[in-house]
């Protein structure tokens, strides 16, 4: 609608101005400043020395030894690789756990469906720090798991299962943190699916496994991809799970960046790592946009 003689442009600009100012100044601004800082030299006392330098980025791969020689240092590369592997594993596990649950929920009556989906979203709205902290009580020394082992005589009082501060503990924390984000988009794409398609496929001699492989999986693909991205991206930059459950021993990208600003006080390096993480995320999002476009083109071709 466009009512005769009414100027909408002015209204639009006035309405959007606060958004442009707040996000522009306090979101894009900080990202730009961070990009600049990543190209500066670090100051011995923490903070930034305003002189152009690539040392922040160089430090990701190389180190300067006692004799001022530059040598290859794989330590950070290992952290990056570990972050990547853990994020991938967490995504895969979430998919495995979330897919059947999403399917089951989508096949319930409207009433039940709404309640179950609400139960899936609740953890998302509660404090992630606290939810992760709950796992310390479960996995920790003398925690719920160890005491139950004790109780059944599977473990003596003095020894420990050493569940905490391991990659597995971090992995459990990551899956636990972001599982709802996997289920919601899968559920959304399954809910729209026509049940008669499954009946038609069965009528044409598909068994249940073929139903999943040939009908359900392809039709819920946009949800699977969307959910995987929603889990993978925050896992890559996760800070709470590696910090609390990895105990700072198993650093991941997120905790490494945070460490540079809290203890190491090497801002340019921290900023460079943050830029690197941002670049990775942008790559993933571009990949996602490509996939989405392909899907849309495919859908339009019909």
């Amino acid at each position: 609608m466009n009512i005769q003689g009414e100027n909408k442009t002015q209204n639009r600009i006035l309405s959007l101005l606060p958004l442009w100012i707040v996000i522009g100044f306090f979101m894009i601004g900080p990202l730009l400043v961070m990009a600049v800082v990543s190209l500066m030299e670090s100051n011995v006392y923490g903070g930034v020395h305003f002189k152009f330098s690539l040392s922040g980025y160089r430090q990701i791969l190389f180190d300067t030894n006692l004799f001022d020689e530059i040598e290859f240092n794989p330590a950070y590369l290992i952290i990056i690789a570990r972050s990547f592997m853990l994020a991938l594993a967490a995504t895969f596990l979430s998919l495995l756990i979330g897919f059947p649950a999403a399917y089951f929920i989508s096949r319930q009556s409207d009433r039940v469906k709404n309640i179950l989906i609400f139960l899936v979203t609740i953890p998302f709205w509660t404090n992630l720090l606290i939810r992760t902290f709950a796992w310390i009580i479960i996995l920790g020394k003398g925690g719920v798991i160890e005491s139950s082992f004790n109780f059944f005589g599977l473990l003596d009082e003095e020894s420990s299962l050493n569940l905490m501060y391991t990659n597995s503990a971090i992995l459990i924390g990551l899956v636990y943190s972001y599982l709802p984000l996997m289920v919601l988009p899968i559920y959304a794409s399954m809910e729209k699916m026509d049940l008669r398609l499954l009946e038609a496929a069965t009528d044409l001699y598909s068994n249940r496994i073929e139903l999943i492989r040939k009908i359900i999986l392809p039709l819920s693909m946009p949800g699977l991809i969307g959910g995987s991205i929603l889990v993978f991206v925050p896992c890559l930059g996760a800070f709470i799970a590696p910090d609390l459950l990895g105990g700072g021993k198993k650093l991941l990208l997120g905790s490494l960046i945070q460490f540079q600003f809290s203890y190491a006080r090497n801002w340019p390096f921290g900023a460079a790592m943050a830029m690197f993480l941002l670049a990775l995320v942008i790559l993933v999002l571009i990949f996602n946009a490509r996939l989405n476009r392909k899907h849309r083109e495919y859908a339009n071709q019909k």
Partner: peptide, 25 residues
């Protein structure tokens, strides 16, 4: 404008946190 609104959801929280810290400092 709709891109601007979703931007805070796209950028990893730790990056936003660090960038805002640097910005204010």
């Amino acid at each position: 404008s709709s891109g601007l609104i979703t931007l805070p959801l796209m950028v990893p929280e730790i990056v936003t946190a660090v960038a805002t810290l640097i910005f204010f400092a």
